[in-house]
Design a protein around this nucleic acid. Structure first.
Length: 568
RNA sequence: GUGCCUGUAGCUCAACCGGAUAGAGCUUCUGACUUCGGAUCAGAAGGUUGGGGGUUCGAAUCCCUCCAGGCACACCA
């Protein structure tokens, strides 16, 4: 099924050809509903190229435009815009078509890709905190959208399960571990022994050395240390899994950093033999002397003590995704501070002749009250668990007030759907690059442009069908007359042209904004147009609009990883 | 010092890779329930898009410059 934008765009091309004018401009949704539904600036573009009068050119184009099937006669406005207004019959036909289409009009991608989406990436022996919400929720939504558009998506959790902090974790485990505390709250106890070891190490050189020795033993395969490491990994994964269960996040694979250990020497050897890496100050580095901004920023792939670091691991990770998984596209979702690192890695891959499409999808930070970055090391982070629990508690309180008769089991389910939805939507509805100050109020707002507002629109529709006492069945004819009906129908048709561009610049907030406007149009329609009390054929038409709105809302929210309740 | 990111209404944010009079929400004020769920709707108020130049029919958007905040820049991840 083609969108109106595509249809009108083709009509424009044909009109330009018929008028012996070069191809120029494009058809876009109108910037303002007062002008119509779609517009083109073709005449303005051509006027500039040819030094002619834009309004005269616009008239010339209109004389050749054959759009009567879809649009009222196009009009010229302003400097030379051509405006299209969809005919009610055309919209009605579209509504009927959309009701028959599982994809709700959204076209599949022209060329499907195999995409590895790397997001979340929590660290073992550390709790997940609010900062993880961004990467996790953003990556999940992008993966859902890509997969809906027909791409083959592999969701990979690149867990931080290897590194120098394990020296301290293992020393702490051997010397400070409280088994009872570990049984009660494993992560809290792991964090406690890590922190305390770190503190002691600051004043005690013997402990620092002991930690270093534990790390060396782990890396050289010492059985006891290996077992401790394995247990911390297992305990952490269980903890992560609980969070993912609540968040509704699913991974296809979870390849931690340790997975790549035995590939690291090969990576360094290869880069050396290719002449891309060289020895410098005892370390082995890749230099980018021909790129000005990277000229003085080498990428170290082997430390002077012979150890590997995360650059080495990440190169091996890219290899794995391309060679073993067969991906042609890699999306890595992390905070902006890692930008340089991935710029270097992608450049190395390019130098090795890899042609895959690499994207580092960055996001802003969550700040503390002091407007400074919430640092991982500071220990002042709000644990993710607390945010999720608080969200559910607040949602439960509001649902109980609004709807006291709900049975306890259903109440719990609804509170979860609304609370978690609110947290996710707060993230996804804003531009991913902006930093913001953490606040419960902000994250759990239930009014305005929020998930509960959208969920409420859905629930109102379900309520209508409950009252109707029958499943939806498509009406014989759809006839749109009221302004609120037409406005809602236009919004519904726009879903198809909203979803694909989200991936152009990885901006789920575009989809969120659309859904908000759709819900808004529905609420206005709901106030203006009674459904059940209406006479046929208006009744059938309005039920169809309700049903389609519910489907688009549910589907759109699902693409953002947000569920809808039947009641709330 | 070099590079990158951010700066839009009192607050939180939009503006779909140059479009028309810069839009929402929160807050404030005014209205709307004998009517399908008021977590709603209708309306009002609120702006020199950080400042200054430039490019052109047209700039929040592109270029230059300055200001403010943040991040990153060789062996942590």
């Amino acid at each position: 099924m083609e969108t109106f934008q595509i249809i009108l765009g083709r009509a424009l091309k044909q009109a330009l050809a018929a008028a012996s004018l070069p191809d120029a401009g494009e058809v876009t949704p109108a910037t303002d509903a007062r002008f119509g539904d779609y517009q083109t600036n073709a005449a303005l573009v051509l006027a500039k190229q040819r030094g002619e009068n834009p309004r005269e050119l616009a008239q010339k184009i209109i004389d050749h435009l054959e759009v009567a099937e879809w649009s009222a006669p196009p009009t010229i406005a302003g400097a030379g815009f051509i405006n299209f207004t969809l005919r009610p019959e055309t919209l009605a036909k579209k509504i009927a078509e959309l009701l028959r289409d599982e994809r709700l009009g959204v076209p599949r991608a022209d060329t499907p890709h195999k995409i590895v989406v790397d997001f979340g990436s929590p660290n073992v022996a550390k709790p997940m905190h609010v900062g993880h919400i961004r990467s996790t929720v953003l990556g999940d939504a992008l993966a859902r959208i890509a997969s809906f558009l027909g791409h083959e998506v592999i969701r990979d959790n690149h867990i931080g399960d290897w590194g120098t902090q394990f020296g301290m974790v293992i020393w702490g485990w051997k010397n400070l571990l409280d088994r009872d505390a570990l049984a009660r709250d494993p992560i809290a106890e792991l964090v406690r022994i890590y922190k305390e070891t770190n503190e002691r190490g600051k004043t005690d050189e013997a402990i620092r050395n002991a930690c270093r020795e534990e790390l060396v033993r782990l890396q050289s395969g010492d059985a006891a240390n290996r077992a401790i490491w394995q247990e911390t990994v297992t305990l952490s994964l269980q903890e992560f899994e609980r969070a993912y269960e609540i968040l509704g996040i699913h991974y296809d694979i979870q390849r931690g950093e340790s997975f790549y250990n035995d590939r690291l020497p090969g990576v360094v050897e290869r880069l050396c033999s290719e002449g891309l890496a060289e020895k410098s100050e005892g370390a082995i580095c890749v230099f980018f002397r021909d790129i000005p901004e990277l000229a003085e920023r080498p990428c170290i792939i082997r430390k002077s003590d012979g150890g590997f670091n995360y650059a080495t691991t990440d190169i091996a990770t890219i290899d794995y995704r391309l060679d073993d998984l067969g991906a042609d596209t890699v999306w890595i979702v992390t905070g902006a501070p890692q930008k340089l690192h991935f710029q270097q890695l992608f450049e190395i891959a390019r130098r090795e002749g890899k042609t895959a499409d690499f994207r580092h999808i960055t996001h802003g930070s969550i700040l503390g009250e002091d407007r400074k970055l919430m640092k991982t090391r500071s220990g002042d982070n709000v644990p993710l668990k607390d945010v999720l629990e608080e969200a559910i508690v607040r949602a439960r309180k509001i649902v109980t007030e609004k709807n006291p008769e709900l049975p306890a089991g259903e109440l719990e389910q609804i509170a979860r759907t609304i609370g978690i939805g609110a947290v996710k939507y707060a993230e996804l509805s804003q531009y991913r690059m902006t930093d913001y100050v953490f606040s419960w109020e902000r994250m759990l707002a239930f009014q305005g442009n929020t998930a509960p507002y959208l969920q409420n629109a859905y629930v109102r529709i379900r309520s209508i069908f409950r009252k109707l006492g029958a499943e939806f069945s498509a009406p014989n004819e759809v006839i749109l007359t009221e302004p609120a009906e037409l406005n809602l129908a236009k919004r519904l048709a726009q879903f198809a042209e909203t979803v694909p561009p989200v991936l152009n610049d990885f901006r789920p907030n575009l989809l969120a904004n659309y859904l908000f406007e759709l819900a808004n149009a529905f609420h206005a329609f709901y106030e203006a147009c009674p459904v059940l009390k209406a006479e046929e054929p208006a009744r059938g038409t309005r039920l169809a609009l309700c049903e389609l709105t519910a489907r688009v809302l549910a589907h759109g929210l699902d693409l953002l990883g947000i569920a809808v309740p039947e009641r709330m």
